[in-house]
């Protein structure tokens, strides 16, 4: 029944197709169990690292947010590679390009908002002074 489409697809029977994100390339079940265990292991280690960075006082205090961000980005990478099966292969070009565009938009939105609002707060007259002027 459903074997036909997937088997043709997964063995590359009909041409050489792209790889859908989240789909699994054709491998044995054992391969995927090992893959997910490895991903879980890396993710757990990175999570523990970031909780450790936040709670212990081993890291110089102003650098703690940087450490947390680094661990978070590393963990997102682990999730993309081991859970979503995003690779650098040619069958993944479209997925990676879409992801890169998404990351660009996210970066522009977050840094742009923080940057602009920081300067607006900086330049805004304190509220009590403004109330004085309105009298």
């Amino acid at each position: 029944m459903s074997e036909l489409e997937t088997d043709l697809h997964r063995h590359g029977g009909i041409g050489h197709e792209d790889h859908a994100p989240g789909d699994e390339p054709h491998e044995s079940v054992g391969h995927w169990v090992r893959n997910y265990l490895l991903g879980l292991f890396f993710a757990v280690v990175l999570t523990i690292c970031s909780f450790w960075a936040a709670t212990s006082h081993m890291i110089w205090a102003p650098a703690v947010p940087v450490a947390i961000v680094v661990f978070a980005i590393a963990q997102m990478g682990v999730h993309l590679v081991f859970f979503l099966h995003i690779t650098t292969g040619p069958d993944n070009t479209n997925n990676v390009l879409a992801l890169a565009f998404g990351v660009l938009v996210v970066f522009l939105l977050v840094t742009g908002s923080v940057w602009i609002m920081y300067h607006l707060n900086h330049n805004m007259m304190p509220t009590d002074e403004m109330m004085q002027m309105q009298r």
Partner: peptide, 16 residues
């Protein structure tokens, strides 16, 4: 000449 992608690819990519 490999033709259009299969529905599996299109659905997965669209959801991505």
């Amino acid at each position: 000449d490999s033709g259009p992608a299969s529905k599996r690819i299109i659905v997965g990519y669209g959801f991505w």
